[in-house]
Amino acid sequence: MGQQLINKEHITHKRSMKAFIRKHIGWLFIIVSVLAIGLFYFYPMIEAFLLSFQSGAGASLKYVGFDNWMRLFGDPSFLAALINTSIYLLVQVPVMIVLALIFSVLLNDPTLKFRGFFRTAIFLPCVTSLVAYSVIFKYLFGVDGIVNHFLLNVGAISESINFLADPIWAKIIIILAITWRWTGYNMIFYLSSLQNVDHSIYEAARIDGANAFQQFFQITIPLLKPIILFTSITSTIGTLQLFDEVMNITQGGPGNATLSISQYIYNLSFEYTPDFGYAATVSYVIVILIVFLSIIQFKVAGDKK
């Protein structure tokens, strides 16, 4: 009798133990990630915040209050980087998304021939590493690059254009390069979503007399809204972080005509006399911009619902 009681107690104890483990073991699965995210993201963010109030060359840092933050407003290089990055953002992201949408709608037509070929070809640029395609674009648009040869041969120009030494052309080349690399990537997102759309919706619209443009704006765009929001946010974040292309195509030049914010942070930390404090301040500007723009994009997409 006594023995039985102990056994019972033992069993319930074992059961509650098991329940306890089952309830909390989830934490063990996520603990490594949580610690790593803390160490490699949150700790640096806090450190960068503290650094933004310090100044000095290399490791000899001391607190200087808001000096770094005030310096931002009178720093022509920072201003140039901010304006360049805004231009990249305002021109490149919309152009790319519109192009990707057009491609995806055209390629979604089941009666189109060579769909697979077109799709793969337009998607192909995203196999290249950012550095590799940047170097290729630099050479394509070089003074004796193939683009100049082509333009000379067809008679469009009488002498080679030094694209990368011209402030406006250099920006255009950077925008062209990014668009080349990422349009197909974004197209795949739209195409995959379109494939889930029931074709009868379009048929019904056609019967109701809607033309191609009306179908595009009144059916396709609303259906793709969540994915367009997703791609515009990722593209915005990507463009705000632009580094590899600028570094390898123009190195920010001519002058500061193509300098991006990320490259300026890199230069402040590792190219010039290291000024980690000011670099951290500039980096917080990107953080603020990303948070701000993401909220706006969410709001814009949310309001139309």
Binding site: V34, P44, E47, I265, Y266, S269, F276, I286
Partner: peptide
Amino acid sequence: IVLLTMMIPFAAIMVPLYRL
């Protein structure tokens, strides 16, 4: 909270990581 880190640009944490 983990998802929030998707918004952190690498350039922002590069210097502290280098110092770490």
